[in-house]
Design a protein around this nucleic acid. Structure first.
Length: 375
DNA sequence: CTTGCCGGGAC
DNA sequence: GTCCCGGCAAG
């Protein structure tokens, strides 16, 4: 067993690769997925993308076992863990070599089919620090990918690999992994229009001509039409497998940016293709109702949700040049972070004190909202 | 810093 | 379902 690859629970974790750019813990301790495809989605049972055109992962494993067994003899481990402190480049180069030369089946328990979720935890150590205590909570599944803004990972050198190999080895979480299942469309946000076109120029032309009543020449455009459409990442998988979109962090989910109608210094919507952070929060309207029904949207309490999310889109038909407010699907209001105002009443903690914790109401004992001294 | 409690994990 | 706790945000 290689010293730096620790199969956990019969599976080799694969996503901790440091240049798998997108993995980083948040303050809460768990890692959240946003905008990218998590490794969980490539379980062997699924029709995983085959970077080498060899069929399923199982086939890859068979092929690897039978055909590339010799590669297992590459003495990579010697150079992987030098007695001293290896530089990042060196470590990465070693990892690349090893990843190239050893198949997951060789690295893992023979009876366990290859799981792309595999990872080598020491990557986290090498990228986060020498502490080995970091990995325990992150390997249990609640982890994912960083926002797209982080995925460039410019500080990590790019291994000299063919893109396919890099894609395979590093669990590349970029949309390329699902390049066959994600289609970018452009949806007109004009009230009761909803026209969807496949090209930005097309949607701009549509908005200019149909809604703005302007000429079709784009050279006269001031970019206003950009306010009226949004980019949709149509996830074919989500459409065919609706359950996947129920995850709170649907990787490709998107929502029309809630640009206020005011002239706030929000990023120009025209930069949609260059603004992954905006796009990552953009949910196709085809999936919006799913999120609405799902109770996992933030911390909105029922009290607060009354009268907020049931109104539905209220897009005023603009009579002036001012861009209209794009229709915000109900249930997708930015609710996260909204907390119930702190109660003014005394709480069990304050009344009884920590020493009399057994006298607290159960809610207080469980660090929930106090039920004894309600506001 | 303390406090209230949300969110989520363990069982 | 209960129970607990990390961590966030308000104060």
């Amino acid at each position: 067993m290689l010293p730096w690859c620790q199969p956990e629970g019969g599976r080799i974790h694969f996503g901790g690769v440091p240049w798998a750019p997108v993995c980083s813990p948040r303050k809460s301790g768990s890692i959240h997925c946003s905008g990218q495809v998590g490794p969980e989605e490539l379980l062997p049972g699924q029709k995983a993308e085959d970077p080498w055109g060899l069929g399923s992962w199982d086939e890859v494993g068979d092929w690897d076992q039978s055909g590339l067994l010799q590669s297992a003899y590459i003495p990579v481990p010697k150079q992987r863990c030098p007695p001293g402190k290896a530089g990042l480049d060196e470590v990465m180069a070693a990892a690349v070599l090893t990843s190239l030369s050893t198949s997951p089946l060789i690295l893992g328990p023979p009876s366990v089919p290859f799981s792309p979720e595999s990872c080598c935890d020491p990557w986290k150590e090498s990228s986060v620090g020498p502490s080995g205590s970091y990995s325990s909570s992150n390997n249990s599944g609640d982890w994912g990918w960083d926002p797209p803004s982080d995925q460039s990972s410019p500080s990590t050198p790019s291994p000299p690999l063919p893109p396919e190999a890099a894609h395979f080895l590093f669990g590349d979480p970029t949309p390329r992994k699902r390049k066959n299942s994600v289609k970018v469309m452009f949806k007109c946000l004009w009230k009761s229009c909803g026209k969807v076109l496949s090209t930005s120029s097309g949607i701009q032309k549509h908005i200019r001509t149909v809604h703005l009543g302007r000429r079709a020449e784009p050279d006269q455009s001031d970019g206003e039409e950009d306010f009226y459409y949004t980019e949709l990442d149509i996830n074919v998988d989500s459409l065919t497998d609706g359950l996947s979109s129920l995850t709170p962090m649907s990787p490709t989910s998107s929502v029309p940016p809630a640009f206020p109608s005011l002239d706030l210094p929000v990023p120009a919507p025209s930069e949609t293709t260059a603004m992954p952070t905006i796009l990552s929060s953009v949910v196709p309207t085809t999936l919006c109702h799913v999120h609405t029904d799902h109770a996992y949207q933030g911390c909105l309490t029922p009290v607060h949700s009354v009268g907020i999310s049931d109104k539905g889109p209220q897009l005023p038909q603009p009579t002036v040049i001012r861009p209209p407010v794009p229709a915000i699907p109900s249930g997708l209001k930015p609710t996260t972070g909204i907390r119930k105002p702190r109660g003014e009443a005394k709480k069990c903690r304050k009344v009884y004190g920590m020493e009399n914790r057994d006298m607290w109401c159960t809610a207080c004992r469980w660090k929930k909202a106090c039920q004894r001294f309600l506001d």
